[in-house]
């Protein structure tokens, strides 16, 4: 694994009365899409704000790009899209973009030409001299997204990037995120919608009530959490499949329908071995499918039904996205 780009080391943040983030440690490797997952109020935004140096942690340390110190020192290399979007409503689109790039340290002329390029790419060229408040919500979101990308950051931090996006723009956002990773950029994004995280993330960290529940590569998490299921379908002859199913070293539980069976694998068992044994037993298979538990199920198991309720009932707009 390459050197982590973002490191949180036992970071804690307390607000009057409650601990928003509790001794959270995590490492984001470079050139991956990293998901910070958790129910509402889990501490995702607070964690991101600490990474960005918008608020200071009470305890623990933040490191970026292999150095100590949080976001502002590296702001020219980070693109940040906060959860609560906002632009100067009365400024012209192009001026806002140039200004926001300038405060990231991009020279004015370069900022201007890049802004024009991006506006063109996202179909907003005709709007560049309009005031921000004349634009639709969706267009404003695009403008804000452009402002995140103008200085060509190595690390892009997106707080709930899909919230409030219509399906078309959510698709654009998803494509852009994937394109960024293809170009070797690192993306850290937070979400409470597991379906998106499952499709996009290479690595992830699930937090609830400010604490880390699990982190690591998506595939590892799936392997170690929630167990594996296999669905087997027979084409006429089940052969000696029953013997295979009865091996408690391989199969923990079986739900046999004769022509069809659902197996829950024993801890540490390898589905490939079962497949071999079944073929060896003379069974004719029409189907052998590894059923991974969905991230959603893992999440619910980990976070608990109470917190999960908030997570599986995201706001209507986000659900459509």
């Amino acid at each position: 694994m390459n050197r982590p780009l973002v490191v949180l080391d036992r970071v804690t943040k307390r607000f009057a009365g409650h601990t928003a983030v509790d001794a959270l440690s995590l490492a984001v490797p470079s050139a991956v899409i990293f998901g910070l997952l958790g129910p509402n109020g889990a501490g995702k935004t607070t964690s991101i704000r600490m990474i960005m140096d918008i608020i200071a942690p009470d305890e623990g340390e933040v490191g970026l790009f292999g150095e100590r110190g949080a976001g502002r020192d590296h702001s020219s290399r980070i693109g940040y899209l906060p959860e609560e979007r906002g632009l100067y409503p009365r400024m012209r689109v192009l001026d806002v973009l140039v200004f926001l790039a300038e405060v990231k340290g991009v020279p004015r002329r370069a900022a201007r030409s890049r802004a024009l390029e991006w506006l063109d790419r996202l179909g907003l060229s005709d709007w560049r001299q309009r005031r921000v408040n004349e634009l639709s919500k969706g267009m404003q979101q695009k403008v804000q997204f452009i402002s995140t990308m103008l200085h060509d950051p190595d690390l892009v931090i997106l707080d709930e990037p899909f919230s409030g996006l219509d399906p078309v723009n959510a698709q654009v956002m998803k494509d852009t995120v994937l394109d960024l990773r293809r170009r070797g950029k690192t993306i850290l994004f937070s979400t409470h919608i597991m379906e998106q995280a499952e499709k996009l993330c290479d690595e992830l960290c699930i937090i609830a009530r400010g604490r880390k529940l699990v982190d690591g590569a998506l595939s590892d998490i799936k392997r170690t959490h929630g167990g594996h299921h296999v669905v087997v379908g027979f084409d006429g002859s089940a052969g000696a499949a029953q013997q295979v199913f009865a091996d408690r070293g391989l199969v923990k539980k079986v739900d046999d329908y004769g022509q069809y069976a659902e197996l829950e694998l024993a801890p540490g068992a390898d589905a490939q071995q079962i497949l071999q044994r079944l073929v060896g037993s003379g069974a004719r298979l029409s189907r052998f499918e590894l059923m991974e538990p969905s991230l959603n199920k893992i999440f619910i198991d980990l976070v608990g039904p109470e917190a999960a309720r908030a997570a599986v009932q995201p706001d209507a707009e986000a659900a459509r996205a």
């Binding site: 502002r72 906002g86 402002s147």
Partner: peptide, 17 residues
């Protein structure tokens, strides 16, 4: 107030002190 109500402040303070 404008920067606060429009929430652009969060982007600004992530780049500027």
């Amino acid at each position: 107030i404008e920067e606060k109500t429009s929430r652009i402040i969060e982007v600004l303070v992530s780049s500027l002190r």
